[in-house]
């Protein structure tokens, strides 16, 4: 796989295997690849495997395995020769209503990038993105990466409450809120998609590694 990741305890029942200190394509793909390996070849005593942006969290049962032995197993799995299964997950097309009342920051984002709103939406929807991780809130997915030319920082101020379905844009990524949340990202649109339903099993439809194509709703 890639460079030796950092393996460290997160409290007494969890281990974090981290592939980078900053978010990059390589670190994110390494985390995804390692998650796939863990799913394909589970380690006894590991009760939960969670891919994050640049790391994988392993929760384990301390009665079945200790940190040192788990670190050993993780080392073996990282270096094992395995037929890599295809990393690509499912494909999703996400219809978005851009701008207007439900996308109050669209104009500002386009202006900041010196693009017309139409040109920004076209550029935003041009690339197929990958779901980098689920995190922050139920069903909240980070999708990336947009080309450098589309990167804008987050807003200076946090909005305390934006509704489920909001489509968010910042730092080279687009995120989809599945529940009502606070956010410092630019709110550029709204989708009907709700990637969290507690009465569904599993409760989310989209997961890390899936492909995402955004489309403007007609």
């Amino acid at each position: 796989m890639v460079d030796t990741p950092l393996v460290l305890p997160l409290g007494e029942d969890a281990m974090l295997v981290r592939f980078g200190a900053t978010l990059s394509q390589d670190a994110n793909l390494a985390a995804l690849r390692f998650t796939r390996r863990l799913d394909a070849r589970p380690i006894t005593g590991v009760v939960e495997v969670v891919p994050n942006l640049v790391s994988v969290l392993l929760r384990y049962d301390r009665h079945q395995i200790g940190f040192q032995r788990l670190a050993g197993e993780v080392g073996l799995l990282l270096t094992a020769r395995m037929d890599e299964t295809d990393l690509a997950g499912r494909e999703h097309r996400v219809q978005v209503s851009f701008g207007g009342e439900t996308g109050p920051d669209l104009d500002e984002v386009a202006e900041r990038l010196s693009l017309s709103v139409e040109a920004f939406v076209a550029a935003h929807n041009a690339s197929r993105l990958r779901v980098l991780a689920t995190g922050f809130a139920p069903g909240f997915v980070y999708c990336g990466f947009h080309p450098e030319a589309l990167h804008v920082p987050r807003r200076r101020e946090v909005r305390p409450h934006i509704p489920a379905g909001s489509v968010l844009f910042a730092a080279g990524q687009t995120a989809i809120a599945a529940t009502d949340i606070p956010t410092g990202w630019h709110v550029i649109g709204r989708t009907q998609l709700r990637n969290f339903d507690p009465l569904r099993e599993p409760p989310t439809l989209i997961e890390a590694g899936d492909g995402i194509v955004f489309e403007a709703e007609r």
Partner: peptide
Amino acid sequence: VSDAVVAGDIQIVGDGTPVVLMRDHQPT
């Protein structure tokens, strides 16, 4: 970069306040 959180984590928020994350913590 946003990363996994566990209950009991002592985080230092933007204004320098220490906050101990409890059972309903954010996942990351």
